[in-house]
Design a binder for these strands. Structure first.
Length: 572
DNA sequence: GCCGTTTTCGGCCCGACTGTTTTCAGTCG
């Protein structure tokens, strides 16, 4: 049973307790534990295996620890089963509709016998819902609208699709005179792998003019709300964009508040209460004298709380507040630290640009090296290179290198790790390359045991230096393959092999919490784009975002090192 | 149910909006 599944049980328990009208703090305790479990970089099964104390997880105490153990050992939880049996089966479905909370769900279920969204829709159209106590026509209409929203739209989109919209809007609005501080907040700023909406914040001499410019942008499909300091619009891809302006002197607290995460802010506010302070988007209030202090910058805001500045990417309630108290927040890796890209395709296999074009694009980014990793012959669909074509590519790389100074093309390959763990290229071919990347491209539905054995085989292969996209997931399209990552991480350390953080926004693999755990265990990491055309090299920032969310410093990432140092680190 | 440089008992984050109400419950971020 994985962490997500365990967390789901506790989320459901919280929902059921809420339906029962239980103590709100008890409900909150279950929700808090569920969130903590979801964000845990380590699988709980692994923790139990290592004999670690589950009560070390923040929000998990005696009772929940016992319930987790019962879940893991027996596969189910009696407390949960009993609770679930108390309610009609459809009621959880009703709770998924925004605007319907526990009270409304219970009312709909007990008084109208509604179990499904279709039944709810029918009841609204019949006027039965509006007739309930403390419900009216407007409430019923709102629910109907939410049902339609839920039906024809996937709520979250990959950050790679949101970021270009953010860039476009900011570019268009920042030229307006008197505009300052225009920046995304929320999950975009924290570089989460998917985002549900875009929050933009700023300060301006004339906010209304900026808002007018926003609603007139071609990419705005619909205007939901438009006021003097705030606007909400729907972009052409269906994503909601909120833009909000405040006075310059309170920008810091506003940005902090809307950047989140929710969990981070809750802990921050709980801590502030103990100091006699109250936090809000407007600033910090000293409760004893009831005076509000405003903050122009986030740095000043955190400083007032006695905390070191915390980068947005790690504001996830993973212990960053304690570290900020001690002044030991790590200096996270930055895009400008990256000296080369290590996973790049050209028109020799399934890429679109020539070797020279890719090299020039890398030089333009200020890189010192670029590892060419066209597919090997096993991937016929990708026009993989056989011995003869690889020889010719090596000659061309050598010829190009004679023309460069301060930059080097490295010869490599992305070899396929076959279903049985063998590699689709002969050893004598691999030994002529500077660096070899291995990756799984087929039979991704194998059992956990087979997939793990397959990857461990590749890690122990002396010719392979880096394992690319270790879980093979495609966000929103393909689930990660089942693999014992803890075993993979330990093997990578043992054999001195590097694991990739794939920066392609549809992959981001390893993902944040997995990269976090890998770093903890001392795995060497690289960040690569898996570029199939020159423009893709610019996707590096998404991989850096993942690395920062994993608390990585520059020294944790091999391709922040100068060429000679990078090569010797790989060679052990 | 969790948790503790004010506590092993008594607290537990903050503000806004909406719709239904004559003062507030429910929901959300």
């Amino acid at each position: 049973m994985n962490n997500a599944e365990i967390a789901k049980v506790f989320e459901d328990i919280a929902d059921f307790l809420e339906l029962k009208g239980e103590n709100v703090f008890k409900i909150r305790a279950y929700q808090r534990a569920a969130r903590a479990i979801n964000h845990l970089p380590k699988e709980i099964e692994v923790m139990v295996g290592l004999g670690e104390d589950l009560k070390a997880i923040p929000g998990v105490g005696e009772a929940i620890a016992r319930k987790i153990t019962e879940l893991l050992t027996t596969g189910k939880l009696e407390y949960y089963e009993k609770l679930r049996a108390e309610f009609p089966p459809g009621i959880s479905t009703l709770l998924t509709i925004p605007g319907i909370g526990p009270k409304t769900a219970m009312k709909l279920s007990s008084e109208l016998g509604i179990q499904t969204i279709d039944e709810l829709e029918q009841a609204i159209k019949d006027g039965r819902v509006a007739g309930l106590f403390r419900m009216g026509d407007k409430t019923a209409e709102n629910i109907l609208r939410q049902i339609q929203m839920v039906r024809h739209k996937d709520m979250r989109i990959p950050i790679g699709e949101a970021q270009p919209i953010v860039d476009h809007i900011i570019d268009a609005l920042k030229t307006i005179p008197g505009v300052k501080n225009l920046t995304p907040a929320g999950s975009v700023r924290r570089f989460k792998e998917t985002v549900g909406d875009i929050d933009l914040m700023g300060t301006a001499d004339d906010p209304e003019a900026v808002i007018l410019a926003l609603v007139r942008l071609p990419l705005v499909k619909q205007v939901l709300a438009q006021g003097p300091t705030k606007a909400s619009v729907i972009a052409t891809n269906g994503l909601q964009v909120d833009l909000r302006f405040v006075e310059h002197d309170s920008f810091g607290s506003l940005l902090q508040y809307f950047t989140g995460s929710r969990e981070h802010n809750i802990i921050l506010r709980e801590r502030a209460v103990k100091q006699g302070l109250k936090l809000s988007e407007y600033g910090i209030t000293d409760r004893t004298i009831d005076r509000l202090e405003k903050f122009a910058s986030e740095e000043a805001f955190y400083r007032r709380l006695g905390l070191q500045y915390i980068p947005p990417e790690i504001r996830e309630a993973m212990g960053e507040i304690e570290r900020a108290e001690q002044g030991t927040i790590p200096e996270l890796v930055e895009l400008s630290d990256i000296r080369g890209d290590l996973h790049v395709h050209t028109d020799w296999s399934d890429g679109q640009n020539t070797l020279e074009e890719m090299a020039n694009a890398a030089i333009k980014l200020g890189y010192e090296y670029l590892l060419i990793t066209d597919h090997s012959a096993g991937l016929v669909v990708a026009h993989g290179l056989d011995r003869e074509r690889l020889n010719r590519q090596l000659e061309e790389i050598a010829a190009l290198n004679r023309r460069f100074s301060g930059f080097r093309l490295l010869a490599g390959a992305e070899v396929d790790i076959r279903a049985d763990g063998r590699i689709d290229a002969p050893e004598d071919m691999l030994s002529r390359l500077d660096v070899v990347v291995g990756a799984v491209h087929s039979s991704m539905g194998q059992s956990k045991e087979r997939m793990t054995r397959r990857i461990l085989g590749a890690i122990s292969n002396p010719h392979i230096d880096i394992i690319a996209h270790p879980t093979c997931r495609l966000i929103g399209e393909r689930e990660p393959s089942e693999v014992d990552l803890e075993a993979v991480f330990r093997a990578a350390v043992e054999h001195g092999k590097a694991l990739e953080i794939n920066a392609m926004p549809s992959r981001l693999d390893l993902k944040d919490i997995h990269a976090y755990r890998a770093r903890e265990l001392g795995v060497k990491l690289v960040i690569s784009t898996d570029a199939h055309q020159a423009e893709h090299l610019q996707l590096m920032r998404f991989g850096v975002g993942v690395a920062r969310r994993a608390w990585c410093e520059a020294e944790d990432i091999l391709n922040t090192r100068p060429l000679a140092e990078f090569l010797s680190a790989l060679r052990r």
